[in-house]
């Protein structure tokens, strides 16, 4: 069950289109699997669109409109076909991903072993930066860390805990330098998450601090 959602303010900014592309992507992916938030966004869209009804219309006699209308009606219909949804594969297991993430499946690199029972596959988001699919096998754990920037996570499939809370498929998690956590999964099926960090993680537990010189390689 989904327990962690974007704030109402984040949903509002998302519907307005006034939000960073990376945050918009994770919010959008969450809404794709969370009917509760999707309904909120639908309601905000209706509210926002009333601006079109209430705005004082520009003078229609502007000749530019007639030209525009004629040129548009020369355009062909665009036939759209449903696309077979691409899925993420790991060791013969296939994972469905929310629709907004599907376009990025082809931008996803190979899985590599991160630490222990944790695997990672980088996702190229173009100039919006890089994301990662991270898979924790049962018993897999990322050492305790905080964040120099912001860490956005969407649980794609499975369950994990991080010492702060327990998360399930569809949960939306945003962490920054005020949060210290150590994600680990005890689920039999493990846990696949989609994660975007804008700055390297900072490992906080005694030993893992030694990882900090390398954290830009591991998690950013």
């Amino acid at each position: 069950m989904i327990n962690y959602h974007p704030t109402d303010k984040q949903l509002q900014q998302f519907a307005e289109g006034n939000i960073s592309p990376a945050l918009a992507l994770v919010v959008s992916a969450h809404c794709d699997v969370c009917s509760q938030c999707q309904e909120k966004v639908d309601d905000i869209n209706i509210e926002l669109s009333s601006v079109i009804e209430n705005v004082r219309a520009h003078d229609f006699k502007d000749p530019a409109f007639e030209k525009m209308l004629a040129s548009i009606m020369h355009l062909p219909v665009i036939d759209t076909k449903p696309v077979v949804a691409p899925r993420i594969e790991l060791d013969g297991r296939f994972f469905d991903v929310p629709r907004p993430l599907q376009r990025f499946v082809k931008n996803t690199g190979n899985w590599s072993h991160l630490l222990g029972k944790v695997w990672q596959a980088p996702v190229d988001l173009g100039d919006a930066g890089e994301a990662n699919f991270i898979y924790m096998e049962k018993g897999g754990r990322v050492p305790e860390h905080t964040h120099k920037g912001t860490e956005l996570t969407l649980v794609v499939d499975g369950e994990f805990s991080d010492g702060l809370a327990d998360y399930d498929s569809g949960d939306f998690i945003i962490m920054d330098n005020e949060h210290i956590h150590s994600p680990h999964s005890n689920a039999v099926e493990g846990c696949l998450v989609f994660s975007i960090v804008d700055k390297p993680l900072h490992f906080t537990s005694g030993i893992a601090r030694l990882l900090n010189p390398f954290s830009h390689l591991f998690f950013k």
């Binding site: 592309p21 992507l25 959008s28 696309v83 629709r99 907004p100 993430l101 376009r103």
Partner: peptide, 21 residues
């Protein structure tokens, strides 16, 4: 001037069933 980026079709699939990129 961003060359490749997250585009609106990903975020708000209002014109869904898009042709593949």
């Amino acid at each position: 001037n961003r060359k490749e980026d997250i585009c609106s079709d990903d975020l708000w699939p209002v014109l869904c069933e898009q042709t593949p990129d």
